[in-house]
Nucleic acid binder design. Structure first.
Lengths: 157, 157
DNA sequence: TATTGTTATACTCTATAACTATA
DNA sequence: TATAGTTATAGAGTATAACAATA
């Protein structure tokens, strides 16, 4: 079963080899995803915009600070990004009635459909690339991604 | 051996599941790498700059067009990026004596040391994160990265 | 005429510093 | 005074359109 595709013998790997592979391959994948996201048909969005929409979709009503912290951005940076999303009618920004310093963020209808279409189109693109990959390799890839996530999840979000 | 860490039973994976993991996890890893690269001590460089330095280091004397094609950028974009690297004394840009339309790119001494230091510092950061990861998981991660690379290598250079 | 690159212009992403409004 | 956010400003990264130089 193992060994049908790329996976072969090694069941251990040095820290150094692993770090090298991550540094070499993650940026490669990222660039492909980014360029795909930018030709999503009608409404183009960037990776930071996409990630922001994902966050607001999941945490509807979150504040600007919440979003900035999640994305690892400064408040002015997030404020500018939300400006762009609001001006494109993808996000609604309203003053919190409880604490009038806070801004609450929610997706517009257009924001929801844009997010969903971007996600589906990118998944379809990735799916196309994965069609010719053996299922066993895909399983290794999925496990690898989950391990990758577990490594970065604590520190960098 | 398998199953010591995160890896468990599934040896197959659907295209959809796999695509979802890639789309969710690659950007997460990318952000961590980027933020690390930006605090490399003395000389800060961005991911695109880092990748450009890597390319020029490997293909010393390559032209602007070569670099642009490798990075998937337009010529004006790459021209601007090289402007920045030249002004920071990391890259030398000279007219090719054979074909005077072409610019040949090489690293300066400072470019070489900057690249090496950035690479080592980022690898050290990744290595630190990987210390507590079981070696069996690291092996899966390495295989996963290699599969990831093979998927994107053809299409998106 | 085709290729290689640059300049002009514009928009997004990001930061720091200084500010306003609210608590 | 402390917190939430905006405005001012600046620099990198990216694109398209128009241009110049060379082949």
């Amino acid at each position: 079963m193992w060994g049908r595709g790329i996976l072969r013998e090694n069941v251990q790997s040095s820290v150094e080899e692993c770090a090298r592979e991550i540094l070499d391959d993650v940026p490669l994948a990222m660039r492909a995803i980014r360029s795909q996201l930018r030709k999503n048909g009608a409404i183009e969005i960037s990776i930071p915009q996409f990630r922001t929409l994902v966050f607001i979709n999941r945490r509807s009503g979150a504040s600007l600070s919440d979003a900035a912290e999640h994305m690892g951005l400064t408040l002015p940076s997030m404020s500018a990004m939300i400006d762009g999303l609001v001006s494109r009618n993808l996000v609604m920004r309203r003053t919190d009635s409880q604490d009038r310093r806070r801004m609450t963020l929610t997706l517009t209808e257009r924001g929801r459909t844009t997010l969903q279409r971007a996600r589906e189109s990118t998944l379809a693109y990735l799916g196309g690339l994965l069609e010719s990959t053996p299922a066993a390799d895909r399983a290794v890839l999925v496990k690898g991604m989950q391990i990758l996530k577990s490594i970065f999840a604590e520190r960098s979000v």
